[in-house]
């Protein structure tokens, strides 16, 4: 019924192996109107960036419930990157501002629970800013590589 799933055991051996050649798995929520188009632009412009990010398109960052982020982390995502329109540019006028409000609360909640808040990140990238999206992804992957695997991640 609730989020608390039973914790199953996993082998230590496989975990050690994973730490060695660690490639983070990052979930990214991109809004349809700015960042998803920005990511598309980065792709069509053949900009190089690490392939660790799985993009999920949402209509607006305002659609992202904080439980999506927590669910992703509980299922073992090493990081969650949220990318939306710049403040003032939202296609729906204020969805990104709502996300910004939620994000600060989510960040302080995650931090209080003893989980590194750097695993969750919010950035703005417009449809014209393929380079900003690329830089954001590159920085995120570097940051997560430094932090190591998500301790809640189960074996593959």
């Amino acid at each position: 019924m609730t989020a608390m799933a039973d914790t199953s055991s996993s082998s230590t051996k496989a975990k050690k192996k994973r730490k060695k050649g660690f490639e983070p798995r990052i979930v990214s929520f991109c809004c349809n109107w700015c960042s998803y188009a920005g990511a598309d632009l980065a792709g069509t412009s053949r900009m190089q960036m690490p392939p660790n990010v799985r993009i999920i398109r949402v209509n607006c960052t305002g659609r992202i419930d904080p439980s999506f982020v927590l669910d992703a982390l509980a299922q073992g995502a090493d990081g969650v990157l949220i990318s939306g329109c710049h403040p003032g540019d939202c296609h729906y006028t204020s969805g990104n501002l709502k996300m910004r409000g939620r994000f600060v609360l989510l960040e302080s909640l995650v931090e209080q629970a003893g989980f590194d808040p750097r695993r969750v990140h919010l950035q703005w990238a417009s449809a014209a800013e393929g380079d900003v999206f690329r830089d954001g992804v590159t920085a995120m992957v570097e940051r997560i590589k430094e932090l190591g695997p998500n301790p809640a991640r189960e074996e593959d």
Binding site: A3, T7, L73, V110, F115
Partner: peptide, 10 residues
């Protein structure tokens, strides 16, 4: 909560 289950696994 999700966070509690993350802590448990950690």
């Amino acid at each position: 909560s999700y966070l509690s289950s993350i802590t448990a696994k950690k």
